[in-house]
Every structure is written in C-alpha cells, then in structure tokens.
Design a protein around this nucleic acid. Structure first.
Lengths: 221, 221
DNA sequence: CTCTCCATGGCACCGAGTGCCAACGCAAAC
DNA sequence: GTTTGCGTTGGCACTCGGTGCCATGGAGAG
C-alpha cells in the first residue's frame, strides 16, 4: 500500500547533504511504526471501535499525548495507507514516458500499483481490519477524495491542452480508483496470489461493458 | 439527491391500512426536517467543524439529546443524502425492464438519478457545504462504500447466471458511482443547468478512453 | 558546565456520543 | 373525569476523542 517499507512521515530531507534520513528522523519512524503495529494489532484483536487511544498508546509504550503527535486521529491511522497509496499513484503516473497514451498510462498505473501494494504485508493487514469493521473502512474512504483529486491532477498534467474544463482527468481518476478497489477486493477475498491476472480480467470486463454497445452492427448484448 | 421531498426516516409503513404515513411519523419528519435545515444553515454560515451539536439543537428548538435520536451523529447529517441516493440508485436499477442490457441499465440509471437529484434543492445545498468544508466531504465519502455495495447487489440481481465470483456487478457499481460523482461535480462547478448533457459528454469521453485502444488498426492515440 | 532545542508527558479543557431515568403529552379504557 | 399505558422528550452523568499549554528531561553546541 505504500512505497516505503515504513510509513512515511512528513518531510524527510532537511539538509541536502544528509540524504540518509537523519538519525532523528529514523527514531521518529521507529516510534511511528511501533504505534502503527500496536494499533493494528489491537484493532484485529478487540475491534476498531472497542480499541481506545489509551490502549494503543499503552501497548506502544508512549503517552496518549504523544500518540496524537504522530497520528492526528485514530482514523488517521487507518487512512495513512490510503494517502501514501495516493502519492504512489501520482508518482507512477508522472513517471510514465510521454509517448504513452492516457489509456495506456491508466492501465499501466493500475497494474503497477496493484502489484506494488500486493507485495506489502501491511496492505493485507489493513484490508483485514477494513473488511471486519465498517468504521475502519469508513475512515479510509473518508480520505479517498483527496487521493482521487491528486490522481486527477496527475492525469491533467499529461494533458497540456488549453482545455480548462476537460473532464477527462477526473474520469480517469475515478476509473483508476474504482478499478483498483475492485482489484484489491477480489484479490483479498479469493486468495489468488496473482493480482495482475485479476486486474487484466477486470480490464477485459470493463472493455466488454463499455465498448460492445458502440458497434452499430451488433445491437443487443 | 433523495427521492422524497423530505429526508427519509427509517420504516414508514406500520399498519398496512394506513398508507398515509401516520400522524406520528409526519410529526417526526417535521422535527427531522427542522434539524436538517438548522444544521445545513449553520454549516453554511459558520463552517462544519465550527458548528457544535448544541448550536444545531438550539436553532432547531430541540434538546441536544433529541438531536441524537434523529441523527446518529453530525456526520450522519451530511451522509444522509448519500444513503438515500443509494436507495434511489438501487430502485432505478431494479425498475429497469429485463430486456435492457447491463450497459443500457448503467447509462439509463446514471441519467435518471442525475436528473432526479439535480431537481432537488437539497442536493445543491449539500454540495455547497461539501465543496467548502473537507470534513463534510469526508463525512459523505465515509458512507459511499455501503452505497456502492448496494448498487453492486442490484446489478448482480440482474445477472441470474450461476457465476459466483463474477466481478461485473462490482465494476458496474464503481463505474456508476464514479461517473455520477464527476457529473455532479461538473454540474455544480460550472452552472450549466442541463445535467443530462454533461452526463452524455462523460459517457462519450469514457467510451473514447476505454474503446479506442481496442481497434488493432489504429495503434496510437 | 551551561544554554538551547526538541521530544515527551501530564494536565485541563471542550465537543461528540451514549445510557439512564424522570417528566410530559396523548390516547384508550374505566 | 380519572386512570392506565405508551411513546417522546429533556436533563444528567459518564466515557472517549482531540487540543492547547506548560513543565520536564535528554542530547548536542558553545
């Protein structure tokens, strides 16, 4: 779900010399991970609503006050994966060579992010919790708007046309998020390890649904 | 955004004889509307986070405790439109004659719900608040999962095949939600009154994006 | 050794949300 | 008219989420 093995904090590089994330930053990351592990563990054991912030802080070995220094809320913990996944998405879109068409970027990005996220153990842990507890699911969803907007902007960056109110980027963003969501869900529900195969199948279904109506010779489905 | 001119409460019909919603039920509906108006008014004036439940209750003329009897939370107020909009969607899908293909149902449903929602003044009011305050937007989003699941089930009902793990309904549900979201956003941002035209334009763009890659003779975009 | 910076912890405070109980209104039954 | 019963309401107390403020403590620079 996130590009780095640990949860990304805010800014990392302060001194341009020290690209190795400052001892200080790594200590913070350690605490951050400890809180994350404690929280997800408790969520899985006791449930999302039943787990209080005090529980998490106690298991992580920090004070309640410090918890809020690392995560702005309990929901933020669950949503963190989502926002990282947003930066991954925009990164992947931006990284595509300009020779590719928008549709190709769309397909390629979905494939890449799906594989990348499926490789992270945290992804499965988050999905387990989200599947069990609606409140946790809601916490993630509530941040999806930002991600979708970011993705739309990334697509818009490839569309240097002067057309201001072109809806193409927004549509592509919605498509990207939706297809990825279905992909993850299917990958999680049935234990199939090959997430690319699932994504391909979804692309095929999508094409069948949208395009079969457009051939004037073949009227009905 | 909702099929009835007033916000739907839970169950309405108790006695099969009295289809006119029981004097009691209508009184409840009155209070419910009063709270809703007070809340949205305050949200627009003071902001979503800045408005406390006490403020809403006081303006609506009920006690703080009663507020929570009608709406389970402040977020629930904003999300209420979304869930009604979910029942409208499933209703529209189910009402389609079985002679139509899934794609036709998809397009028809989006068109119908878009027009229907655009006709309601509440829709615009909700969108104004959601556009201004991210927290309100998040409150709506957090319930979108339920709606999407309901829509997926409605599509699945038309697919009486024994194929259990067919992803078609989920994909269609995601498509429906995404396209509607873009439609509403565009309709709201630019003041264009004809929402059907916007939806048609989006369908066209969608077809262009997905289908143009499938012709093997026309390689590049 | 001292001064400073920063992370941490503790405390007080406010708002959200819930359980519980008493009071009120209302309609049917006596 | 009075009584009985039911549903709605309001007030109270409590827990938990989240924030601002300040004191402490440790590590590094002078």
């Amino acid at each position: 779900m996130n590009s780095s093995p640990s949860i990304n904090a805010g800014a990392v590089a302060e001194h341009p010399a020290a690209m190795v994330p400052t001892l200080q930053a790594r200590k913070q990351q350690l605490v951050r991970d400890a809180i994350w592990d404690a929280a997800t563990g408790l969520f899985a054991e006791k449930g999302f609503d039943e787990t209080t912030v005090d529980d998490i802080a106690q298991r992580a070995g920090v004070s309640r006050r410090s918890f809020f220094r690392y995560f702005s809320s309990k929901s933020d913990l669950m949503a963190q994966g989502i926002v990282n996944y947003g930066t991954d998405l925009t990164g992947a879109i931006d990284a595509f060579p300009r020779t590719h068409s928008l549709s190709e970027v769309f397909r390629g990005t979905v494939l890449q992010i799906a594989q990348q996220s499926a490789a992270h153990p945290r992804t499965r842990k988050i999905m387990e919790i989200a599947a069990k507890y609606p409140a946790a699911r809601a916490a993630q969803l509530s941040r999806m708007a930002e991600v979708q907007d970011q993705v739309a902007e990334a697509f818009a960056r490839r569309l240097r046309k002067g057309s201001e109110d072109d809806l193409t980027p927004s549509i592509l963003a919605g498509l990207t998020i939706s297809v990825l969501a279905v992909t993850f869900r299917s990958w999680f529900d049935q234990g199939q390890p090959d997430i690319s195969a699932i994504a391909d199948q979804i692309f095929a279904t999508l094409g069948r649904l949208i395009c079969d109506e457009r051939q004037p010779d073949k009227q009905r489905s």
